[in-house]
């Protein structure tokens, strides 16, 4: 790791000021992606603003028809939340297949979303459930939040405070793990909400998480595996690497979407 200045603010306001003060500052949430990148010297922030002591950023609560999850809520706490398990079991399932137990004990939802790894699990849930990302400045709709590989709509001095998930009628998540990294080779989140069906795919897209509109249209009428049987996702725009061709990933999207639908609750 390169040397850096370490700051541990107690409030969001303090954290924002630190971000403004230093151009090269980076927020540290659970650190499960940032710290490995820093160890390999792939990231070199001049200042680390550790959010672990900022009050009020953790916890899961029900707010009307929404589940609101604080940005610093650890994966394990989302997974074990009775509220999440009851209202959005697919989200609890997604977290249970994310990383490993030790990673889930440190990693946070806000950290994962701000990083927007193209193979991360959370972006698929946020996009499919049409969640809203609440920051210190504004509310960002999921469709506007993800901007491509490791890029989001967040400004340099913007901090995610919470994520608001509308409770769906039904949702499911199916993940096929990359055999090496255990990230999603492909992950498909399907959800039926009040505005219709949404299908979000992680791991496969060259530009990160994306929606499959053709499936959504079919599922709007009939939210079942059968409804999307004939739909083929084109290989164009899919990641191709050592672990799978673009064709394989495109094919897996169909398989996993059908399985997610079959398991949806």
């Amino acid at each position: 790791m390169y040397a850096f200045t370490y700051e541990r603010p107690k409030s969001v306001e303090e954290a924002v000021n630190l971000l403004k003060k230093s151009g090269e500052a980076k927020l540290l949430a659970g650190g499960q992606t940032l710290l490995p990148a820093m160890k390999l010297r792939l990231a070199s922030p001049g200042t680390i603003v550790d959010l672990s002591k900022v009050a009020g950023l953790s916890g899961v609560k029900r707010d009307g028809n929404d589940i609101v999850i604080g940005a610093m809520t650890k994966h394990v706490d989302v997974m074990n939340s009775a509220e999440v398990q009851k209202s959005i079991p697919a989200l609890a399932h997604l977290v249970s297949v994310l990383g490993d137990p030790a990673v889930r004990n440190r990693g946070t939802i806000g950290g994962s979303l701000a990083n927007n790894d193209p193979s991360a699990d959370y972006p698929a849930a946020v996009l499919a459930l049409n969640a809203t990302v609440q920051t210190n400045k504004r509310k960002i709709a999921a469709d506007d939040f993800f901007k491509g590989l490791f890029e989001t709509a967040l400004a340099g001095d913007e901090i995610i405070e919470a994520v608001r998930f509308p409770v769906p009628e039904k949702a499911g998540y199916e993940k096929f793990r990359n055999p090496a990294s255990r990230f999603a080779l492909v992950g498909v989140f399907v959800a039926k909400g009040k505005d219709g069906a949404r299908v979000a795919v992680t791991g496969a897209g060259e530009s990160g998480v994306f929606r499959v509109k053709e499936m959504e249209a079919a599922l709007g009428k009939d939210f079942s595996a059968k409804a999307i049987e004939g739909i083929k996702v084109p290989a164009k725009g899919m990641i191709a690497d050592l672990h799978g061709t673009a064709e394989y990933r495109a094919h897996l999207i169909g398989v996993l979407a059908r399985r997610a639908l079959a398991a949806a609750k």
Binding site: P179, A180, S181, R182, L242
Partner: peptide, 25 residues
Amino acid sequence: MLEGASYNSDGQLVTGSFMDYAMPR
């Protein structure tokens, strides 16, 4: 089933960490 060290045509090791080289779990 899992492991294979792979170099690209420029001689870079593509499987240079456990992120890309699949160790049996």
